[in-house]
Design a protein around this nucleic acid. Sequence first.
DNA 1: TTTTAAGGGGTAATATATGATACAAAAAAA
DNA 2: TTTTTTTGTATCATATATTACCCCTTAAAA
Lengths: 110, 110
Amino acid sequence: MIQKKSLPTEIISTLSQLGEHIRIARKRRSLTMDEMASRMYVTRKTLSRLENGEPGVSLAVFALALWVLGLDKDLPNIALPEQDKVGVFLERQRLPERVRRAYKSDDLDF
Amino acid sequence: MIQKKSLPTEIISTLSQLGEHIRIARKRRSLTMDEMASRMYVTRKTLSRLENGEPGVSLAVFALALWVLGLDKDLPNIALPEQDKVGVFLERQRLPERVRRAYKSDDLDF
DNA sequence: TTTTAAGGGGTAATATATGATACAAAAAAA
DNA sequence: TTTTTTTGTATCATATATTACCCCTTAAAA
């Protein structure tokens, strides 16, 4: 953990991509690293680590970057339960074959 | 930073949502926290901090969770440059009004 | 009901991130 | 070109994450 060496390749690659996306968005907005870092309430070094895709950077730093750039709208949709097809399938599969009502004498109408 | 108190409300809320998404996806897959944590090569406590939306959790832990759950396909699309409408607009705006070729006597044909 | 397992929460030790600062390299602007 | 700004990199101090334990409460299963 936190060591690039021990991480799956896909994850290393994904984090690099995310860093690159942030760097591009920052440059398009003509923000220097110092400027953007101060708006994020972090130091330039921390922003640098984020843009370089270093795995140890905290989620808060990541979210702050997207927030400062106005690119945070998609983040809450990650792993959204209603979009999780496998999850929905598994949940449905776990339903019992037959349902049996718990008997209560005065609860026979609905 | 890293202190919930000093973070924008939207970010606190977003991180909580992401943690909840992961927790739901884990339960749907009938994974205990111990089971999932070990597949992520982290401890149960770290996974717990992620599911609770704690801002200090590293990006690697987040990405590993999505990866273990098979929910990592959307992550690389966050802040995607071609979807960044503001960014594309700003970039276009920066184009010069007129273009002028740098004159080179032997480079007049193309 | 009894039994078993899951998850919440604490502590100490260690690893790592983050901040603060300085300096050099590279790029942009004049 | 020269000058200025931006960025890369290094170091040290401090804050925090992460691990590896622990115990306890609660929920699930028998």
